[in-house]
């Protein structure tokens, strides 16, 4: 009785109304409007079945957007996790410069994505940008590129910016996990003569597995949902060379093709759900020994 009064369901109502109306309702509505011809004024005259999806799958730009989304999510996740992991191991040493290293590497994570992207538009400028200037300085002229205007590499250039911005975040997640590993375990392994590589493989990795899972999944979700950094760096261009699902949604929306935009959005929604469930299952597979 007391429970019903003090922990009343009534107290859930304000939060649930807000979350329900502004998050759940639009999500569910997408399952209906993705199959309609909703226009710029959100008017629906007709149910079009799978036409919106058919248009998406027959459109070269849309297919490219799918491909780019997966490339971006995969590449950025792999690099952020690997670099973040090794940087964390490095930054876990007792060195004077390590504290400085940590705060510098983490720093880009707090900056506005659009600000970072805008700065990189200048750094990646083909003739006097920082990146090509640096390559020239170290005599790697052959690696100089038109980073943001060459359609064949633009999605990788964008990935590079994302990796630059967020690796420090992954590093901090791993560092926090590394610091929970007891010194005794490491000390006794060292006394037993384990090599550094074996210590990483057999002690560090298993101990930080939960954090590794989280980091991979967080980065994958972020990668699939990407919009800001792509839009601010290239607007999806040149042409549609760097478009991703969310820029595709925006383009259809700004052209007033809201049915199609909803369909693309719904696909993103489903892809994120499926990828997260799948990866979660793979990573959480109990290791039987």
């Amino acid at each position: 009785m007391l429970q019903r009064y003090y922990y009343s369901h009534m107290l859930l109502v304000p939060g649930l109304i807000l979350f329900g109306v502004f998050f759940i309702v639009p999500s569910l509505a997408a399952f209906y409007f993705a199959f309609t011809n909703m226009d710029a004024a959100f008017q629906v005259t007709r149910w079009v079945g799978f036409d919106n999806f058919r248009i998406l799958f027959e459109d070269d730009d849309a297919i490219l957007a799918f491909k780019n989304t997966f490339i971006f999510a995969a590449i950025t996740t792999v690099f952020k996790v690997l670099l973040g992991f090794f940087l964390a191991i490095f930054a876990n040493q007792k060195l004077k410069s390590v504290l400085f290293l940590r705060s510098v590497i983490f720093f880009p994570a707090i900056l506005s994505t659009v600000g970072v992207a805008t700065a990189f538009v200048s750094f990646m400028h083909p003739s006097n940008g920082l990146l090509n200037g640096f390559l020239e300085l170290v005599h790697l002229d052959a690696l100089k590129r038109s980073w943001l205007t060459d359609p064949s590499i633009v999605i990788y250039s964008i990935s590079l910016v994302e990796i630059w911005k967020w690796t420090g975040f992954s590093m901090m997640l791993f560092l926090a996990a590394l610091q929970t590993i007891s010194q005794d375990v490491i000390e006794s392994a060292r006394i037993d003569g384990a090599s550094s590589w074996r210590m990483i493989k057999d002690i560090t990795v298993p101990m930080i597995m939960p954090v590794l899972n989280t980091t991979v999944i967080l980065n994958l979700i972020g990668g699939l949902k990407v919009f800001d950094i792509v839009y601010a760096l290239t607007g999806g261009g040149p042409g549609s060379a760097s478009s991703v699902l969310n820029t595709l949604v925006y383009r259809a929306f700004s052209n007033g093709r809201n049915g199609e935009a909803t369909a693309a959005n719904l696909l993103l929604f489903v892809i994120v759900l499926v990828v997260v469930l799948l990866v979660n299952r793979i990573l959480n597979r109990p290791t039987e020994r």
């Binding site: 502004f22 999500s27 509505a29 909703m38 949902k225 949604v249 929306f253 909803t262 959005n265 994120v272």
Partner: peptide, 12 residues
């Protein structure tokens, strides 16, 4: 986990 469905949200 899920992203917002921006078009239907805009409609709302």
């Amino acid at each position: 986990i899920l992203p917002i469905t921006v078009i239907t949200t805009f409609y709302l």
